[in-house]
Amino acid sequence: MTTPTDSPEQLDSVGIRTEGLRKVYSDSKRGRVVALDGLDLVCQRGEIYGLLGPNGAGKTTCLRMLSSVLSPTAGKAFVDGVEVSQDPLEVRRRIGFLSTSTGLYPRLTGRETLRYFGELQGMQAQQLEQRIEELIHVFELSGFVDGPGSSFSTGQKQKLSIARAVLHEPPVLILDEPTLGLDILASSAMIEFISSARSHNTCVLFSTHIMSEAERLCDRIGIIYHGRLLTEGTYDQLREETGEEYLDGVFLSAVRRADEELEV
């Protein structure tokens, strides 16, 4: 579960760590797919780490492995000190996961969805009801929380999904393109929420296509391409490294360089 070089302090502060994480699978249409190719990544508690990459780069596969939905072909992943392959159930208990593909149950009301997840987390009835009321207030769910999931707008779905993800107050949040499909208001509220997680000492790993979001939010940014982490660092470090002024330029520069290396 740990490596001999880790000190207890270091371990305590690490929210997510991957070591040579690799995922290879076969698909009838695409044949053998190397979705992730030896990813090494560390995300500290209280840190917001942005994973940038084009479609098919391996972002979603990486997040799915961290959330224990997929198992790695090779390598290791630790979430809040727990190795995902060894104890995936404990990992699911310690994370809040949100993505465009984690849909809401359309025939359950918002409140029933929250209650369901809370019960499965083992929350006591009274504590759960209090927490639900708290989240209804914080995320302004009162206008729709008792309607069926199928009647929610995209923004409402996303709000409820966040509430579901943080219901049990997880120490790690994994967010896969959390602002995808949201309008400017909902998107802004989501960014504000992610930003606030830092102050709660939560480790946040999120993937996005939107450079401005990453610029604004992330403590560190990693650029992933063809399943490999091309570069990572703070926004300023990346700009300095590439000589580019904006993150778009940093991203394109890293990707072009990787393509050139591949051609060579």
Binding site: R93, M123, Q127, V166, E169, T202
Partner: peptide
């Protein structure tokens, strides 16, 4: 969001 897992059974 502090971790409060210990409170859940």
């Amino acid at each position: 969001m502090p971790a409060s897992r210990s409170a859940h059974r």
